[in-house]
């Protein structure tokens, strides 16, 4: 599991990815690899460009330069829904559920890209469509059970607590059958016991064979679950390595705490 291992099996690799907004270089020649079925964390001070990196991977932004490869295929120019189809699912920093839809419908939205029924089959409720609908519902319930929200399946999404809304977003992401899940501050607005459950959940996602990438400010969580950490400051990668290495890296300490005189 060594990050230095050259023969590592990368599921995602960024190569000199740059994104500018006007004169601002939000992400500057970012390169890193994510090992298959690992848990990787991205940390950095506020405004360092962490979420921008995620938005570049998920296709919400297109890089100005550089390329992103997923499972050996370039996804640099793909649109967000195509990237989900390729197997990358995400959650949002500011929770973006469909607030007026029910919990189960939010999960079913994630299943959308794995369903095949067309317009005609839907409009005339053909047997194939009904079968698919039932199977998908079953699958969606499994994901809800996985994150522990099965009993809330019929409630309105907006009626859930913030912590549970984050879990629901994860269930929605998992319903799209991803190879890589990208979690943007999953522990945001979660309390201590909720975070504990979250840590177990992230590890359980890995046990399913799914790669996890996350941005998090809760260092306890990051150090506990991540096998590799990338540190970003001002859109540039300043460190990369195992949690122990990062913890003792002088540049990282400087970025977080400032320079000692």
């Amino acid at each position: 599991m060594s990050t230095q291992d050259i023969s590592m099996n990368a599921i995602l690799s960024l190569d000199k990815v740059t994104k500018t907004f006007g004169g601002l270089r939000a992400v500057n020649e970012m390169s890193f690899k994510v090992e298959d079925n690992s848990i990787m964390g991205i940390i950095g001070p506020n405004g360092a460009g962490k979420t921008t990196v995620f938005n570049l991977i998920t296709g919400n932004y297109t890089p100005n330069e550089g390329s992103i490869e997923f499972q050996g295929k370039s996804i640099t120019k793909l649109r967000p829904h195509q990237i989900v189809e390729q197997g990358i699912a995400r959650t949002f920093q500011s929770i973006r559920l469909f607030p007026n839809l029910s919990v189960i419908e939010n999960v079913l939205a994630g299943s959308h890209c794995r369903m095949k029924s067309g317009l005609f089959a839907s409009m005339f409720r053909l047997p194939s469509q009904r079968k698919e609908e039932a199977q998908t519902l079953e699958r969606a319930m499994e994901e809800l059970e996985f994150v522990g929200l099965a009993h809330m399946w019929n409630e309105k999404a907006s009626s859930l607590s913030y912590g549970n809304q984050r879990l629901l977003e994860m269930a929605r992401a998992l319903a799209s059958d991803p190879k890589l899940v990208i979690l943007d501050e999953p522990a945001g607005s979660m309390n201590q016991p909720e975070t504990k459950v979250l840590i177990r959940l992230i590890q359980a996602i890995q046990e399913r064979g799914i790669t996890v990438m996350l941005i998090e400010h809760d260092m306890g969580l990051v150090m506990k679950v991540c096998e590799k950490i990338v540190v970003i400051e001002y859109g540039t990668k300043i460190a990369e390595g195992k949690p122990v290495e990062i913890r003792n890296n002088p540049r990282v300490i400087e970025a977080y705490l400032g320079k000692e005189d």
Binding site: P80, H81, E85, R96, L97, F98, A109, H112
Partner: peptide, 10 residues
């Protein structure tokens, strides 16, 4: 409800 989230769900 939210077209950005919809696109992000696939």
């Amino acid at each position: 409800e939210d077209d950005v989230a919809a696109e992000g769900c696939g």
